[in-house]
Design a protein around this nucleic acid. Structure first.
Lengths: 244, 244
DNA sequence: ACAAAAGTGTTTTTTATACACCCATGC
DNA sequence: GCATGGGTGTATAAAAAACACTTTTGT
């Protein structure tokens, strides 16, 4: 347990905060088998010209979650979307805008994690400044502590895939089992499971239903199209599930 | 995605926050097979006289985690302790101290989750006002949104037990396998696993070492005392573990 | 002797893993 | 025909679950 510096004892005044929301927005480009993160270029000091996670400061009367949705909507138009809170980073000194004498306003960042459907999402060009999907392995050094936040979000994404049906929030209404498999391999790596075993396990869970429709993608046998059945999944909620 | 009310558009001023930290502090009374939460009675308005989670507002120059440790240390003297961040609750209107016209200061609460060793913890009596361990099923209606926070922490505790060795942070240096089993049953319920299977699985993981010492507790065969071997556990870190 | 708690072993069922193989299509 | 991706089945190994049984103590 950390002790109190003698300095702290002399000033028991409460800190005043501005609260920021930073989004780690992932999407999977299944065509190119790449996991992407959305980055934007900072327009202001500090860190002007550096890449960072899309974020905003929370406004009066606005909830944290609403702020997260707002910044997302400002950067990108999406159809399917999954969003949840990640972690709150709040040590003093994490934002250079805080005055050095630690008497001024503090900046606290609540991070959110989002997964969006790549093919139907459309980046909103602002004219000035950049916005781009970055493959996860090519992310540069980011402003603030955003590399750390991203790392945290990446870990969460991998966990979420393993025990929750997030993947289906972000797949088209109808999809093939290889679509699902590709999404999983892209995020978790090639050797997470054999395709045929993945397939069997997934179907045994019982919440995917065969639509009867087939789709042919180039050469090879046409694949069956499946649909996620939310009703069939409902009883499995809260149960410890393993997808991989 | 939520829309923007027309009201919001007219005032884009940033919200000013005070940040609070609320702790969900659990401990397990193995003697009585009860899972306990630490509650304190509010001394001030709002909710004067109501029970709530021990919390505090973050001071200048203080990190969130330090605030969490501070409030814990003010209420209870502990030997063993595990602490991690839980969730941040930040909607407008969650604290009645916010002025009704939503122009005033906002109160945001970062919640922390803690597990402490019951037998060596000592509540700090403040003279005025109450502080008490409550069995989880007997928790009354709490101030603010603290019942919700508690529910969230309870879920986290159950998950943590299943895939991480938190239990050993909170057991004595040396313990019997039934001590571990009792802790698990108290938190997860009687039917989470058979004792003999639990035992076998736990030992197969290989990070518990038999000290050779025995302890006799009343009637029955004396039990071996084990020690948690952090070095032996190290390689298992980050690996998906199942304890139950 | 016997109840109580600790600890071991055995049997059955389920799940994971690694493949081998058949099917339907485009070229 | 054959390459390509889709889909099924099987054989083996490992893990989970249920439970019977032995061992060592206190009384």
């Amino acid at each position: 347990m950390p002790g109190h510096s003698p300095k702290q004892i002399t000033k028991l005044t409460l800190a005043d905060f501005k609260v920021g929301v930073d989004n780690v927005i992932f999407s999977v480009d299944t065509a190119q088998n790449r996991l992407l993160v959305l980055l934007v270029m900072r327009q202001d000091e500090p860190f002007l010209g550096k890449w960072c996670l899309p974020g905003t400061l929370v406004r009066q009367g606005e909830s944290l979650e609403n702020a997260a949705y707002r910044i997302l909507a400002e950067k990108i138009r999406v159809k399917n979307l999954y969003l949840e809170q990640l972690y709150t980073f709040g040590g003093p000194g994490r934002d250079p805008r805080e005055s050095p004498d630690i008497y001024g306003v503090r900046y606290l960042a609540v991070s959110y994690f989002a997964l969006v459907r790549f093919d139907l999402s459309e980046l909103i060009a602002t004219g000035v400044g950049g916005i781009a999907w970055y493959p996860i392995e090519q992310v540069p050094q980011l402003a603030f502590d955003h590399n750390q936040v991203l790392e945290y979000g990446y870990r969460r994404l991998r966990n979420k895939l393993e025990y929750s049906p997030v993947a289906f929030e972000v797949l088209p209404e109808m999809f093939t089992l290889s679509d699902v498999y590709q999404l999983y391999t892209t995020v978790l790596g090639e050797n997470f499971s054999d395709y045929s075993n993945f397939r069997t396990r997934l179907l045994k869970l019982g919440f995917l239903c065969d639509t009867g429709l087939k789709v042919s993608r180039g050469a090879g046998r046409p694949a069956s199209l499946y649909r996620f059945d939310a009703d069939a999944f409902a009883p499995l909620k809260d149960k410890p599930l393993v997808f991989i």
